[in-house]
């Protein structure tokens, strides 16, 4: 009479197997900590990176927010899609500058403070930003309309969060290094943002006032510094920093690849 339970037992085993299989997924998130790096402030080096722009910037595209009147009401003046912003001194804004190579195998503390991606006036603020692996990304909706933050990473896990209410905040973290992760709002097709996720704190974004990013407190060594722009792609330069050395680098993006 034992055999009569055979099939149900198999079913039960299948269920337990399925249940365990599910647990596996969550455990994947744990990462083994690499060796932490102590940086001696006395010998730390600095790379000062400036991003220039040559040529003529394309005309900014006007965004018609007529598609969502709650967005339209937030703006009295026309809104432009500012992919390419050239500052008065000829530098280029919204370029993500970071150390691409040279820090492998080292680990850095994760800042307790989260990076903020805000949605104001139906635009992402900031448009380009960086954060560390494991650092919290706080997504905030400051508008009184539905936004959804739809991230489409390749190495990390995709997510898509709806934020129907003003002031709503959601947090997520990324477990893998990835440059860049595009963010989109499916409700407002014109909205987009990019985030660079790095395992170290040596990154920055050029601003609209000056096109310089200072990467300081770097341990001396050989590095590849990269600059990324959403329209013009990525450029890299290799530098060697001695103890306490301060080097200046210049990247130049051109409107037409001559």
């Amino acid at each position: 009479m034992k055999t009569r339970y055979l099939v149900p037992m198999i079913l039960l085993a299948a269920f337990l197997f399925a249940a365990c299989g599910n647990g596996e997924e969550d455990r994947r998130a744990d990462r083994r900590p690499a060796e932490a790096v102590e940086i001696d402030p006395a010998t730390a080096a600095t790379a000062v990176t400036t991003v220039h722009f040559e040529g003529t910037a394309p005309d900014p595209q006007r965004i018609s927010m007529a598609a969502d009147r709650s967005c339209q009401e937030l703006h009295t003046e026309p809104v432009y899609d500012r992919v390419v912003i050239v500052n008065e001194d000829g530098t280029l804004a919204n370029v993500f500058v970071y150390v691409k190579e040279g820090l492998e195998g080292k680990s850095f503390p994760v800042p307790g403070e989260g990076a903020v991606l805000d949605q104001v006036g139906c635009m992402y603020t900031p448009r380009v930003f960086g954060l560390q692996v494991g650092q919290e990304l706080i997504m905030r909706n400051s508008d009184a309309t539905l936004h959804n933050v739809h991230a489409s990473p390749t190495a990390n896990r995709e997510f898509n969060i709806g934020q129907p209410v003003q002031g709503m905040e959601n947090t997520r973290t990324f477990n893998q290094e990835e440059v860049m992760i595009p963010f989109k709002c499916d409700v407002h097709p014109w909205m987009s943002a990019y985030a660079g996720v790095l395992p170290h704190p040596y990154f920055g974004v050029t601003g609209e006032d000056n096109g310089t990013v200072v990467l300081d407190n770097l341990p001396p060594g050989e590095y590849v510094i990269a600059a990324w722009h959403e329209e013009y792609g990525e450029q890299t330069q290799r530098i060697t920093l001695g103890e306490s050395e301060r080097q200046e680098l210049t990247f130049t993006f051109r409107s037409d690849p001559a």
Partner: peptide
């Protein structure tokens, strides 16, 4: 329901 609001999805 993060933050006490049921998200649309």
């Amino acid at each position: 329901a993060e933050g006490g609001i049921l998200a649309p999805e």
